[in-house]
Structure formats: structure tokens, C-alpha cells
Design a protein around this nucleic acid. Structure first.
Lengths: 117, 117
DNA sequence: TTCAATAGGGATAAATTTATCCCTATCTGA
DNA sequence: TCAGATAGGGATAAATTTATCCCTATTGAA
């Protein structure tokens, strides 16, 4: 586990939400869990760009921040299902708004990003 | 300048918006510029947690992504003013929604974050 | 009986982001 | 005359995040 060496700023809402949502895959994880992809292996398949490892790590953080919960079925082979807590649910409209802006400006963004790569 | 070694994923709206908004201070910069803090020095005072340098760098990226523009006044000492482009403006409601969620859950987030620090 | 699927964590390397420090220039005020 | 404000960039170090690789365990299928 990595231990942070500096304290986070917690001045405004943006700082606060940043602490729980700032992670490359966190919004996607929440989004896909909300869409019904609950098992780690399903999420890994939905997000092929991320390594298995990071997804585990970020899921764990989401869990520690009470945005998701998990159910471990005592079966073999192992079966785990994540779900959104009410707290996590409340974030879905926000993530929706973010993703929607990206979708709406898809073409322009794509062009800009590639031009500045 | 840092040159990236891997290509970005550009699959969905979240990837796209991430490319222009993923940077510790970018949302705050847009927000404060929108509130009327236009000069670099004003922005630096509004965001004391960030080094002068990063703010410059991130402003430059926002500019290259056409979210902000800048006016350089040919005076001495130098005077520069940033402004939101229409494109940048269109992001303000999204940032508002994000910050609002953070504000609404201020107490809970603060507790969670500190507990997991 | 060997391989894939299942879940997840440790150790370490690589990539990326952010911070620090220093340098350029000019004007105003103490 | 020296400090401070103004804007901004280079070089480098530190912090942080993400990727890679490897290991544990069990069951069912080829």
C-alpha cells in the first residue's frame, strides 16, 4: 500500500469530491456497476484499458469511501458482487452529466486531444 | 515539457472529458475564471495550495484545449487576463454539479477521507 | 492432468503529475 | 537602491498513480 506524504486540501466541494473520485477508472467503475456489471471479472472486461490490479485497488478505495459495497459469496470458484450504496447512487447523476458533456462534444474533443498529443 | 509515452484511451465521453479536465486544479481554474478572477496572480491567490508553476502549466493546457483564451495587454508590468471560451462556458454547469455534490456531502466526505488517510 | 476462470494481494518498475528552485524583465514605492 | 508585484519558462526532484509480473486456491472442462 502506498502511504501519502502530504495532506490533502479539503477546502471546497471540489476538493472533497476529488478525494473520492479522482482516480482514472473510478467513475467508470461506478457507472458500470450501476449498469449492472457487478462482478470484478465483468468490470475488467468492460474496462480493458485498465489492469486488473488497478481496478481492484480502485474498487477498494471506492469501498472504503462507502460509495460501493461488496457481497462475497462463500462459493468456489469465488464469486463477488459489488453494488452501489445510496451514497454512491447519489453520484450517478453527476457522473452522467460529466459523461454526457464528453459525448456531446465527442468530435471536437477528439480533434483537440489528438492535435495536442 | 513532458511527452507522454502511451496513447490515451478515447472510447467514451468519460475518457474524452478526462483528457481535458483531469488535472488537479483545472476545474478550480475554470470555476474561478468564471467567477471573475481572470489574472494569473489572482488565480494563484485563490488557489494557494497549488504552486505558481502548475497553475501556469494547467492554464496552458486549458488554453490548448480551447476551454480558455487569454488576452495579453502590452503593458509593463505585464498584465494578462484569461476568459472562458463558449466551449469552456459549457462546462461550468457540469463543474457546478460536481462541486455541489461535494458541498452537499461535506461533512460525510470529510470524515471518510480523514478516516482513510 | 493440464488449462481457464474466479478473486485478490505483494513487490517492483514505469509513467505521469506536481513541487521546488532559479532566471528573465520592468516599474512603483519605501 | 532594494524589495515586491507582474507573467512565465527551464531544469530537476519528489510524490503519486498505474502497469507488470508473480503467487495463492479450487472447480470444471477438454
Amino acid at each position: 500500500m502506498y502511504e501519502r506524504k502530504t495532506l490533502p486540501d479539503l477546502n471546497c466541494g471540489l476538493d472533497l469530491i476529488g478525494e473520492v473520485l479522482y482516480g482514472k477508472w473510478k467513475m467508470r467503475l461506478l457507472w458500470f456497476i450501476n449498469e449492472g456489471f457487478k462482478r470484478p471479472s465483468e468490470l475488467q472486461r468492460k474496462i480493458p484499458g485498465a489492469s486488473r490490479r488497478v481496478l481492484n485497488v480502485q474498487l477498494k478505495e471506492l469501498e472504503s469511501h462507502e460509495l460501493v459495497g461488496k457481497v462475497i459469496y462463500p462459493v468456489v470458484p469465488p464469486k463477488v458482487e459489488y453494488y452501489l450504496t445510496d451514497f454512491g447512487q447519489s453520484l450517478i447523476p453527476v457522473i452522467g452529466a460529466i459523461g454526457q458533456w464528453g459525448d456531446e462534444h465527442d468530435q471536437r474533443l477528439r480533434t483537440l486531444i489528438l492535435k495536442n498529443a
